[in-house]
Nucleic acid binder design. Structure first.
Length: 144
DNA sequence: AACATGGGCAACCGCCAACAT
DNA sequence: GATGTTGGCGGTTGCCCATGT
């Protein structure tokens, strides 16, 4: 299938978004919506590709996004959903209002790292590899 | 006080599926 | 039905900051 020549276009900005760009994007989306991400940056006067705009909006600028630390309940929900759904971050995010797939993915990776470290530090269950994880009834994780 | 290391997060890349022509 | 376009998703990378040495 054809690949979309998105960010490789010359003259498009990459890297962190500035507050000015955020303002422009928010104002444009609130006024016109985001029917066409590809056309949006041109209409809004942003030197970004549509993908970049969409990502910024979905992961950071959306008004319904809940910022800040994850509660214990949310973490438990992520763990539970991950067990059921696997790495379907968007599906998990859909069940956690105000959270984005990117955020959940980040949390998972950092938590997984922590848990792996913990597990290696306290090898109370011998012979487990690190290939897969499963939840025990106590809420702790086994990497089998 | 300076440097090294690790963690957390935002953003990018590449692929795929759905839709349009 | 074939081809092109767009949006969406998951994996990965790079930067910044906090902490340790």
């Amino acid at each position: 299938m054809a690949r979309s020549p998105c960010c490789d276009k010359m003259g498009l900005k990459k890297g962190p978004w500035t507050p000015e760009e955020d303002k422009i994007l928010v104002a444009h989306v609130q006024k016109h919506g985001h029917g066409n991400w590809r056309a949006l940056p041109k209409q809004a006067g942003l030197l970004r590709c549509g993908k970049s705009c969409r990502l910024r909006w979905v992961n950071y600028l959306r008004p319904d996004i809940k910022r800040g630390n994850f509660s214990r309940e949310e973490e438990d929900a992520i763990i539970d959903l991950h067990e059921k759904l696997g790495n379907r971050w968007s599906a998990i995010a859909a069940r956690l209002p105000g959270r984005t797939d990117n955020e959940i993915k980040n949390v998972w990776h950092t938590n997984l790292k922590k848990r792996l470290k913990k597990k290696l530090a306290t090898p109370n269950s011998k012979g487990h590899s690190t290939a897969a994880a499963s939840k025990c009834d106590s809420g702790t994780w086994r990497y089998t």
